[in-house]
Write a protein that binds this DNA or RNA. Structure first.
Length: 194
DNA sequence: AAGATGATTGCCT
DNA sequence: GGCAATCATCTTA
């Protein structure tokens, strides 16, 4: 079914935990996400306005925003109405289907860690910057609603230098695929992180 | 046109 | 737990 992505990232993020994301043959259950707002969020790529890279964030909801970082790729679900920048970063998932493709892309990695971390999640799913702007209801990428976990944990975002006081990270504490919390140096200096 | 930066990972101690 | 690798993008000259 189609999940309602018309709200802000902060509203959509907790609903995304437990949902299923399928890319090609591989499907994962999303267990960890982070919300990123636009102009109000200094940690967001869209904070200083639209650029060539973050253009998708300002477009209509229901699409994928994929960006490159340190030689890796990270995927976001774009939400909020057209014109407002708001997206949810997918940080971790559990592989449900497509083990063959997933393992082939992540040789030597334990099954539980195949999609642990935003960069690893993209590699396991086969997502690259070529998928930037792809529709979440398209033939290659599909987002499906799923049962939400019994409990939902909330806390500060990982490796974010600015606005580390905002607890905009949501995860399923029962999942082994949730990435270990790693506070940004700025967050540690401010005393708001680990 | 050149330099700094970052929503990361993985290897080293 | 700490640090280097690695690269597209953004900032400044």
């Amino acid at each position: 079914m189609a999940l309602d992505l018309s709200g802000r990232a902060l509203e959509v993020a907790p609903r995304l935990v437990g949902c299923f994301l399928r890319v090609g043959e591989v499907m994962v259950r999303i267990v960890e996400v982070e919300a990123y707002e636009g102009a109000d969020d200094p940690a967001s790529h869209a904070w200083r306005g639209p650029t060539a890279r973050n253009a998708v964030m300002f477009g209509p909801p229901g699409r994928l925003y994929v960006y490159g970082l340190h030689g890796h790729s990270c995927a976001n679900v774009v939400c909020a109405p057209d014109g407002l920048a708001s997206a949810v970063l997918l940080r971790a998932g559990e592989v449900i289907e497509g083990w063959e493709d997933a393992r082939r892309r992540r040789l030597g990695v334990a099954d539980a860690r195949l999609a642990r971390g935003p960069g690893n999640l993209c590699r396991t799913l086969g997502l690259t910057r070529a998928d930037d702007g792809a529709a979440l209801a398209g033939p290659r990428v599909e987002l499906r609603d799923g049962p939400r976990p019994a409990t939902l944990a909330q806390g500060p975002r990982v490796n974010v230098g600015r606005a580390h006081d905002r607890p905009w990270r949501f995860w399923d504490p029962a999942s082994a695929a949730v990435s270990a919390y790693k506070a940004h140096p700025a967050a540690r200096a401010a005393g708001t992180g680990g």
